[in-house]
Design a protein around this nucleic acid. Structure first.
Lengths: 348, 348
DNA sequence: CTGAAAGCGCTTACAG
DNA sequence: CTGAAAGCGCTTACAG
């Protein structure tokens, strides 16, 4: 059906081995012959059979991308940039949605890695640690953790491998300081935080960073209410209802994730609160259409392109230097605060 | 490194062939032995080497998904649903962003198909016809066209193969009639259409359907202005500027694509028009956050889950019945109009 | 009924 | 310097 190496060899009047060597640029083949063979291959639309090559070389030229949900705009943009960066490096991208389910994640990991479908996996972990991750660590699989680190315990070989795997995520501390500054500058003293699951490090870290930034500016710890969501829009709306039902209602909200912040805005609208007159809102994860919200939403933007590039680069590095010791390839490009109209003076 | 069939065979005390047969459920292996072998395989975390299997069976268990840009919310949702549906059928999904570039699309097609990386490609074509598509047609590649049909000319075998490939897209005619009814009911008589590229059939069809729906309700053809965009947000904003500069400015806008409608809203805001007091807007492609826009955006929602399911089902059908004649597996689930607040009475 | 053997399309060590 | 041959991990037709 498709053109195979033997077809090219026949058409060029050389052996199969000569075609292989010519295409890989082996100096054994004289430049003139090499160029002639390459021209024939190109003209015939030849592409090496990916499976055959993988079988022989143990390299697939594919990478797995396991994210929670590509319909989440943050991950959609990230996935797009990763696919582009991977293609630029000659890698195909196998996409998987874990739906924040550790079991689903582990099933994908096993299918991708144990099945030799990919050379490595860029993973947004659905939980701090899972059996599948330990298995991948034991098999010394190439892993790059994206957006969220994992929690490695113990000193087994598997644990050490996971601990040595690169982590790429955004650095939020400066942007969150600015956010806290913005809120306290407007006189807010009671703040609600809609937090990602505390089983994820982003959940813990974003929450703690925001609490620190606020208390450093004189907000009392007891005036900070934290409600945990599950990254989904609905959970943001429910968290908002809960915060509004507090005896001492917050005057400002930090939504520590994109979709949950959208849910929170819906909750505010449903309860007929005005933003920012009654309550100020700062979200996490920016989108081009936040400009069009009522009011335009102030949000912390993650450096998506930089994250994608760093993750792909880290993976390519792992693939190229399979034998070399793992490098400390962590990358943490900084977030920035995008100021719009959803923050204003605290009500009297 | 990873567990191979021979390891399972050794652990279970049987031949490699027995393992293969047991895992595929061949009745030659007694049920008891089969279950024992399967248990050993499961326990060892065995997954067949995808490349080796592909080499032997000519089936990869992967499908390619070539879309224009996964960061576009419509395609992001579609990609997510396709990945999920594919996984449920046992297929991996290889994601590619063509960026609406026919050359990039063709390169991906060739890489995926000629390289035997996938069993078939679900494709949102970047152009009405391309060399790569013809090559894929000539090779009798399994193709499912998504969102946009292609224009097949001639009666060559390649052309016939492409013409016989399933097309899955949404049916907009009823929803666009409702949209036209909504606008004319509000007294609008001058309508601007921000259209996708006329090189794509969606561009031509959505535009023509809307024009027909409007003229059928008494709007004069000369009062309908069409400005062509390129699916990108910026082009929507520029199109909006152009429409506002018209001598006879439209009082209602139909944005025939998601991102372009967002651009149009930005253009209106920049020019300080009020929606819907000065101009009404209907968009295409719905998103959960349109509720939060100022004003909440009325839009035509595509049946994304139904489209994804139909596309994957069509592909699975092509894979299963490789030898059978191509079925007429086209699917056209209907769009629906989601009414919000961006449409109102035409200004006097 | 079972096991050994061939062969899918590549790459590369090896013999000539 | 060149070509034939081995072998990656599977599946399945075939011999015993």
């Amino acid at each position: 059906m498709a053109v195979r190496m033997r077809d090219v060899a026949q058409a060029a009047g050389v052996s199969i081995a000569a075609v292989s060597l010519a295409l890989s640029g082996n100096p054994r083949i004289p430049a003139e012959t090499r160029d002639r063979i390459r021209a024939v291959a190109e003209q015939m639309g030849y592409r090496p059979h990916a499976g055959a090559r993988a079988l022989r070389t143990e390299v697939t030229g594919s990478l797995g991308l396991v994210i929670s949900d590509v319909a989440n705009p943050f991950f959609a943009e990230l996935a797009g940039e990763i696919q582009r960066a991977a293609a630029a490096e000659g890698f195909s991208t196998v996409l998987c949605n874990s739906d924040e389910d550790a079991g689903v994640q582990d099933e994908y990991l096993r299918n991708l890695l144990a099945g030799s479908r990919v050379d490595g996996v860029i993973l947004v972990p659905a939980a701090a640690m899972t059996e599948g991750l330990l298995a991948a660590g034991k098999a010394k699989a190439r892993l790059v953790f994206l957006d969220r680190p994992v929690e490695v315990r113990g000193r087994t070989a598997a644990a050490r491998h996971l601990a040595g795997s690169p982590v790429v995520r955004s650095g939020a501390s400066k942007a969150l300081s600015e956010a806290a500054e913005l809120l306290t500058g407007f006189g807010h003293r009671r703040v609600g935080i809609i937090a990602p699951p505390m089983t994820t490090r982003v959940g813990v870290e974003r929450t703690e960073l925001m609490i620190q930034s606020l208390t450093a500016r004189g907000v009392a710890t007891r005036d900070i209410s934290v409600v945990e969501g599950d990254f989904r829009q609905d959970s943001g709306e429910r968290a908002m209802e809960q915060l509004l039902a507090n005896k001492s209602r917050p005057t400002a909200i930090f939504g520590a994730d994109g979709l949950m912040t959208i849910g929170a805005m819906k909750g505010l609208r449903a309860a007929r609160y005005r933003v920012p007159a009654d309550i100020s809102v700062i979200g996490f994860d920016d989108a081009p259409w936040f400009d069009l919200f009522d009011p335009p939403l102030t949000a912390v933007a993650q450096p998506i392109t930089a994250m994608a590039t760093a993750a792909v680069r880290a993976m390519v590095h792992l693939v190229d230097d399979a034998a070399a010791p793992l490098p400390a390839a962590d990358a943490t490009p900084a977030c920035r605060l995008v100021r719009r109209a959803s923050c204003g003076p605290a009500p009297a």
